[in-house]
């Protein structure tokens, strides 16, 4: 973004054409156009403020739908299989979430289930609810601002990728004692994480909020 120099520069500029950096409050004029793959960064603290990608909404929708399908596949197929001294044991992703379900640790099971399954799925659904009408050229969904705000607020609590690294650590820990065979759910969940990271790289908050705003005016 252009580096603001003095107060006079902002005199008489309509509020619509100004943006404040959420991280340091520096005031900027909204650039008239930011190229796809280019970034507008805050002139003061360096935070990325705008990073549009062309065709982003269609891609986000495609990737979110893919991620939902992968999650269903991951939940309903074998996850890990353990063999030691001729004995077998296996666990699904739900089993991992329910590992704390005995007695007073039950709330932790619910939290783990929320972190690795419910919140990631909810975020995907909220993003689809927000973006599908906009791409289809219809007015924005009535609750699109609430839905997208919630999707953003839940972002730190969506921990599917941390779970995948957790699986890797657990595998290293049991590697010497037993043989672990990853099942289809393991690969589906890994792919899900990859697709989600890719989807997040297409998400530009300014672009989405501007589209919701424009979609509401119709």
């Amino acid at each position: 973004m252009q580096k603001p120099v003095s107060m006079e520069e902002f005199a008489g500029v309509p509020l619509d054409e100004l943006r404040a950096c959420p991280h340091c409050d520096a005031l900027h004029r909204l650039p008239s156009h930011v190229r796809s793959r280019a970034k507008a960064v805050c002139g003061r603290c360096g935070s990325v403020l705008i990073a549009p990608r062309s065709g982003a909404f269609t891609r986000i929708i495609a990737l979110a739908a893919t991620a939902l399908i992968l999650m269903v596949a991951a939940l309903f197929s074998p996850f890990l299989d353990l063999t030691a001294a001729g004995m077998h044991s296996n666990a699904s992703i739900l089993d991992a979430a329910m590992a704390f379900s005995q007695g007073i640790m039950l709330p932790l099971s619910l939290a783990v289930g929320a972190f690795i399954i419910v919140i990631p799925v909810l975020r995907l659904l909220l993003i689809l609810y927000t973006l599908v009408p906009l791409v289809a050229g219809r007015p924005a969904a009535a609750r699109a601002p609430v839905a997208f705000s919630l999707a953003e607020a839940l972002k730190p609590w969506s921990m599917a990728e941390i779970f995948v690294i957790g699986v890797a650590v657990a595998l290293v820990k049991v590697a010497g004692l037993a043989t672990v065979t990853p099942g289809p759910a393991f690969w589906a969940f890994g792919a899900l994480v990859f697709v989600t990271v890719l989807q997040d790289s297409f998400m530009d908050k300014e672009q989405i909020w501007a589209a919701i705003d424009a979609g509401r005016a119709k």
């Binding site: 779970f163 957790g166 657990a170 049991v174």
Partner: peptide, 14 residues
């Protein structure tokens, strides 16, 4: 949170 997930995976698997 990775530690909690590792415990969950080990406890459900072993």
């Amino acid at each position: 949170m990775i530690d909690v997930f590792v415990v969950a995976i080990l406890a459900s698997l072993v």
